[in-house]
Design a protein around this nucleic acid. Structure first.
Lengths: 318, 318
DNA sequence: CCATTTATACTCTCCTTGAGCATAAGATGG
DNA sequence: CCATCTTATGCTCAAGGAGAGTATAAATGG
């Protein structure tokens, strides 16, 4: 029922719950996107939200910094979802999980912690199209998806299912859309091709390659990857993942690592330069193969200069 | 500390909290974007999350439908934030507020409820640029912002503040960016120009026009408007706000109402038609001034046909 | 009939973007 | 030193998209 917040009841009542933070912490090292994991790579780092902090964001930062010993560059909230009695029985308290995306550089993880970095394509092998379409996509996934679509009784549903598969996986001459990470994951999950740990049927009946994760952590990771893949296109967040100085090729490789696909080198450079995102340091890259490249640094000023936000309406030039 | 979710402690421990849902429900009627409000327009509808629902989303839908008696078209999570002791004293339970954006059509609100629809520009008069830049922006807001920028002691901070003002409000020959709703609100708040209800100093010392709201509800509304303004550009969500049949001008007026600025009529039509978003119903609009317009309806098939997601990387055509 | 209002069809031009060509500058092996 | 390989970097081209503007059509109310 609608009511004014001032009339909020002060009794905790029956719906007292707990709040957890779950973090998708991303780093890119040598062209490999990595995420911080715990429990041998089977879970994302998570912990209870402490109300001693001013906000959820500061709580996450403090908690991550305590874990890894170095500050988080960019932080963004991903999604909040409710878990009803994850442990199964009704007596356990409900909880709300608030997930975050954080960008850093791979660094020493504080000794004594079980956390470490894992390549994210280990969890989503079908998402890496840098070396072309992964072979098992056509060999394994596509036939299984086709079978799943056909298994629906009504022909209308069959077509609908296949159209969904085709859009999400770039089949039937459609283009691959690297941003549909979550949709693809959900499609594979729904069609029973990737049993997650703790799921009923699944006792390592992995039909499709890809490391599973606890509970819905792999879904959260998919959400994070999708968000990041979309974000790098209109916000200069890649630089949060780069060292202080880098070559344009290194920058390009990082973008390609995140996007899971290759970009046109000359056009990439044109894009970066015309947006004045970087400036030369004056130095050249050492110990490289081929012609030495100039070193660049990110122009932090652009963050203040511009408010990058996309537009696609037929607006009027002012 | 990092730990596996399986090891979750089952005791509620000291950090038991409550979860609330807050909704930004949007409708557009006669070129006016409206939001559902309660308490005489001073608050957004909100209520406790009931764990009897499968998910947060279904909880929101059920709750809204109980309120208004008609289903929600499009629902999207906005943001989750923590309130520490909103009521002030430390003894009150903490809570987490999960906010949602929902799109509907203005309809009869169930009798007996205090909810009703309020125009959203009543809360953000500076956001409506359809009839040109609002006069008080140049007359009142700009000078006050300039004064605020100058009030910073270090010259560097002065420049930084002014640059932020200029970017967000389109000053110094910059273009107005309609998506920066939240940034503008926060800037005005930070500079003390819009005291919110319940704030220390503020006893109706409204410096800038605009109706205030309880707690941080106006900030949530700003988040919702910003999200919607961004979304209409790459997802066909406007149609959730339209009647079943409409003319292209009506559609355009709705977009303009949301964006707070005018679009080029011919180009708008070209955009809509080349994307095949609509189809003719065969009928013509009745009782209109001027030449009668064709009536159109939304092609729901496009939702299945396409996965609309923006791209801006120098990728390779396939 | 005329002014007014809205609908609808084209055209034009600039800019963006995907793509390719050509050249430069280093290393390495003969 | 030269051929070759590899990466860096500069430049051009063509198609498509997006911002404007022009022109015409179809209704209404004097």
């Amino acid at each position: 029922m609608a009511r004014s917040p001032q009339k909020r009841s002060t009794a905790p009542s029956g719906n007292a719950i707990t709040a957890d933070l779950v973090a998708v912490l991303v780093a890119v090292t040598d062209g490999t996107p990595k995420i911080m994991t715990i429990a041998g790579g089977s879970a994302l780092p998570s912990g209870p939200f402490e109300f001693s902090h001013r906000s959820l964001q500061t709580a996450l930062r403090a908690w991550v910094e305590a874990q890894t010993g170095h500050p988080l560059g960019y932080v963004e909230q991903l999604y909040t979802f409710a878990d009803r009695g994850r442990s199964g029985d009704a007596g356990t308290p409900h909880s709300v999980s608030i997930s975050y995306l954080g960008l850093t550089r791979e660094d020493q993880v504080g000794a004594g912690f079980e956390a470490h970095w894992s390549g994210w394509y280990g969890y989503f092998p079908w998402e890496d199209h840098r070396a072309g379409v992964p072979p098992f996509l056509a060999k394994v996934i596509t036939p299984k998806l086709k079978a799943w679509a056909k298994s629906a009784p009504p022909p209308a549903l069959q077509r609908e299912r296949w159209q969904r598969c085709a859009i999400n996986f770039g089949l039937d001459d459609r283009a691959w859309n690297e941003e549909l990470v979550l949709q693809r994951y959900e499609l594979l999950y729904e069609s029973g091709l990737i049993p997650e740990t703790g799921r009923e049927h699944g006792r390592d009946t992995a039909i499709v390659p890809g490391k599973p994760m606890t509970a819905d952590h792999r879904r959260i990771l998919a959400t994070g990857i999708a968000r990041l893949r979309a974000k790098i296109k209109y916000r200069p967040v890649v630089f949060e993942l780069m060292p202080a100085e880098f070559t344009l090729l290194q920058l390009q490789r990082s973008v390609e690592a995140l996007a899971g696909r290759l970009v046109h080198k000359q056009n990439f450079r044109r894009l970066i330069e015309q947006q004045e995102l970087v400036e030369e340091t004056g130095a050249m890259a050492a110990d490289t193969v081929g012609r030495p490249a100039k070193l660049f640094r990110f122009r932090h000023a652009v963050l203040a200069e511009r408010a990058v936000a996309g537009t696609k309406l037929p607006l009027t030039r002012t």
